[in-house]
Computed example of a mutant assay.
Amino acid sequence: MPISKSNFRPGVVLYLDARMLANDPGTTCSVARHLQPMKGHFFVCIKAGTWVPVYSRPGPGRIELDSTEKGGHIKWTTGKSHYHTQQYWTASDDAVALAQHRDHSSDNEVNTVTQDAVTTMIAKLGL
């Protein structure tokens, strides 16, 4: 069952359908469309309405999240996670709720990153 919008807060991680999110008319992204993920991806909420996609592979401009900063479902906590220092999305809670794509979170078990990770991401993104 998808997580409710009342639980969207900094540090929450959701698996979202990036294409569905990108197609919402109120959603914006800081990078060109061809650089955006277009399938299911984990996204970290870093502040209200601001989400950062996370990639499983390193790449130019990407920083790895420390595995000790991740909590929740095994699909999220295992494996490597990287975010791009220039990519963030703004989206309404309604758009994010609709884009929850095969997410294993529930209101009782939410995927997360630590507040320290959120603070670092905000600083690296210059927000």
Rank of each mutant, 00 (worst) to 15 (best):
M1T: 14
K5L: 08
K5Q: 15
S6L: 06
F8V: 01
P10R: 13
G11N: 10
Y15L: 08
Y15C: 11
D17Q: 04
P25M: 09
P25F: 05
G26T: 13
V31M: 08
H34T: 12
L35G: 01
F43E: 05
V44W: 01
G49I: 05
V52D: 00
Y55P: 00
P60A: 11
G61F: 01
I63M: 09
D66E: 14
T68V: 11
K70C: 11
K70V: 08
G71F: 12
I74V: 15
W76M: 04
S81H: 13
H82R: 01
T85S: 09
Q86A: 09
A91W: 06
S92Q: 04
S92L: 03
D94I: 09
A95W: 02
V96C: 04
A97Y: 14
L98V: 04
A99Y: 07
H101F: 15
R102M: 13
R102V: 08
S105Q: 13
S105D: 14
S106K: 07
S106D: 12
S106F: 06
D107P: 08
E109V: 10
E109S: 13
N111W: 07
T112W: 14
V118A: 07
I122E: 06
A123K: 15
K124S: 03
K124G: 00
L125V: 05
L125R: 01
